[in-house]
Design a protein around this nucleic acid. Structure first.
Lengths: 127, 127
DNA sequence: CTGAATCCGTTAAGATACTG
DNA sequence: CAGTATCTTAACGGATTCAG
């Protein structure tokens, strides 16, 4: 009965490359990567712990986690205790996704200096 | 004298991983990947050709190309002919960035079926 | 008390259209 | 083809309310 939380998707891409790039538009929002990163680092974490670690709003953390759970990247577990407790952890799929980012982040670390330089030059006096 | 076109960036990430993930927030907007993909496939292309190939609005294509030029991923060349002609092509940096996406797109093709299944299950009866 | 849901606000992405 | 000027929609944040 639910539906996608965020509207950004890969519908504007040609059919044959849509599945390959679909996840890029999930990762490309503001909080998906930080949340996945926190869960990978800490293993299992409570909602409130992630919230404080990232200084993310409660609302955005809820929406981001729900999207990740929907995609099967994060597993959610509720404990009917008092006070209530909700814990999250990466699924195997979530872990493999994070690993598949190594090549891209490697590019980032290797090229960010060149990109910054290019931006400075462009912003200074175009040409 | 110029400035970033799009406001999305990696400022919300911790300092030590910001350079690695910065480009993700460039690639994550709607038109960057399609434009880079078209240029990689066609080599060198005119503005109007890309426009028609992607059914992107003139405005968004201008903004996207300017951002890519600013980052040194695309080279812009103007021909003072009649009618005027402007051509674009990937730089070496742009090509290497596209190559660094292989791991992620590979993950996408390998996992999109599982993700879609997870989404269907979640949307059907949350639990 | 935690975390989800909801209302309301702001900002930016993106489309369309017109100008030069 | 670039610039500008709306317009619409969505992302995001803040605050409140509600349920367990």
């Amino acid at each position: 009965m639910s539906k996608p939380i965020f509207k950004r998707n890969s519908d504007h891409l040609p059919d044959d490359c849509r599945p390959g790039f679909d996840m890029l538009y999930v990762l490309g929002d503001k909080w998906t990567v930080p949340v996945l990163g926190a869960l990978r680092r800490d293993g299992r974490a409570r909602f409130s712990d992630i919230e404080k670690a990232l200084s993310i709003s409660q609302r955005m953390l809820t929406l981001t986690l729900k999207t990740l759970e929907r995609d099967g990247l994060v597993r959610r577990e509720v404990f009917a205790s008092v006070p209530p407790r909700v814990e999250y952890e990466l699924t195997e799929r979530g872990r493999s996704l994070m690993n598949s980012l190594h090549e891209l982040t490697g590019w980032g670390f290797a090229n960010h200096e060149g990109v910054e330089e290019s931006r400075r030059r462009f912003d200074a006096g175009s040409v």
